[in-house]
Amino acid sequence: MTHPVYASLLSSMSPHTHSIVALQSNAPIDFATLFPSVELRIGASALALAVIVAIWSLGARLHDRDSENVSSAIWHLGVTLFRLVGVVLGGVFLFSVWSSSGDIATLSEQYGLGTDTLVQIALSAAFLVGAYVVTTVLGRLISEVASTRPEISDHQREIIFRLAQVSTYLVAVVVILGIWQADLGGILVGAGFLGIVVGMAARQTLGALIAGFVLMFSRPFEIGDWVEVGNHEGIVTDITVVNTRIQTFDGEYVMIPNDVVSSESLVNRSRKGRLRLEVEVGVDYETDLDHAASVAQDAVESLDETMSVPQPQVVAKRFDDSAVVLGVRPWIDRPSARRKWQAQTAVISAIREAFDEADISIPFPQRELSSRGQSGPVPLTDAPSQATPQNSGPSEGRND
């Protein structure tokens, strides 16, 4: 079904238009006289194409520059319009050069391309060009806004731009289908059935896709964060709309579907910019716990690998088989696996040296065996004089 505006435009132009040959005869410049031969027309076309390419390349360089006197959005919009005007003028020139020979008129008559069809082609091209201009300007505006909003990541900016780009081109396609009097109702019904079939066939992929958009905007983690997803732990290297890629501390790359990421328990160790470690150390039951805790805390506070604020804490955790276990809890900033292991190694070394200087023993597991019918510990080995005959020498019945 054609939009009323386009239908009235086409109907108003149909009775008042002439053939392409008549339009060529009314042209202000006689291109047939300027380019009478095929060789000249080919040379002029090659020159026009070279100019178009040069204008397009110049516009790309101008996009990379910023004007001090003009805002960034207006500058890029002007550069985009400059490139489009150059392309349009080049296209008009090429059309005029080749239509002067009558070739385009011959093709139009051969394939039944009337003035209405040419108007439809021109309107379709205009809407495509307009969609390109709109998406370019939107991309620049989104980049400019994202640069002033630190909470918007680069990946989120890219997703927003792609959604705006797809929406703009989708609107342009719908308008163009209306210009060509396409049955939009049938197309929409067919697209609906196709969407149902694709949705049932790619249910898991679509679930990961939707979960990817949720992760993009909820932002539970970012690229470079140290996360633990289920049984996987590592550094986030990439986030796409389908999966999340993690590099483990063993150097392996793990690709986790986004629907799995959203359904699993997630731990982000880099979220607050600091991480608390815990190192357990056991002391003898006869040791003064307050003194041991003070020695351990002083040893940790003097390290460069740990933070002074918040202060490290030492707490009594449990009664073990051979010791009372203390938990030493220092903090590190800018957490990473390397900084964690460096700090943990430094804490263990500092506590051991401090305990040695303070004469605080770190006991190891000991066991004592006893018997109900015997007082005192049970010996595990016999004295040499009580060795069994099998171990004292050769047996009597042995023949040398």
Rank of each mutant, 00 (worst) to 15 (best):
P220K: 03
N258M: 04
G230N: 07
N243D: 13
R219T: 08
G282C: 09
F221M: 00
T240S: 13
R245T: 11
L266Y: 08
E252C: 01
R274F: 13
T240R: 00
S263I: 04
E233A: 12
N231R: 12
D288S: 07
D225F: 00
M255W: 09
V229Y: 07
V229Q: 10
G273F: 07
R271I: 11
W226E: 03
E286G: 13
G251Q: 06
V241S: 05
T248K: 05
D250L: 12
E278I: 10
R274N: 14
E278Y: 08
R274P: 05
V254T: 03
E233R: 15
V283C: 00
E278G: 12
Y253S: 13
N231G: 11
V241E: 01
V260F: 04
E222Q: 11
R245V: 08
Y285E: 03
E286P: 02
S262E: 10
F221V: 01
E286A: 13
D288N: 10
V281D: 07
I256M: 12
E233D: 09
G230D: 07
G273C: 07
E228T: 12
G273K: 05
D284N: 15
R276D: 04
S265V: 11
V267G: 03
G251H: 05
I239H: 08
T237Y: 04
E252A: 10
E264T: 13
Y253H: 12
P257Y: 02
R269Q: 03
I246Q: 02
S262G: 12
V254K: 02
D259P: 07
T244I: 02
F221K: 01
G234D: 09
Y253I: 10
S263P: 04
G273S: 06
V279I: 14
T240K: 01
R271S: 14
D238H: 11
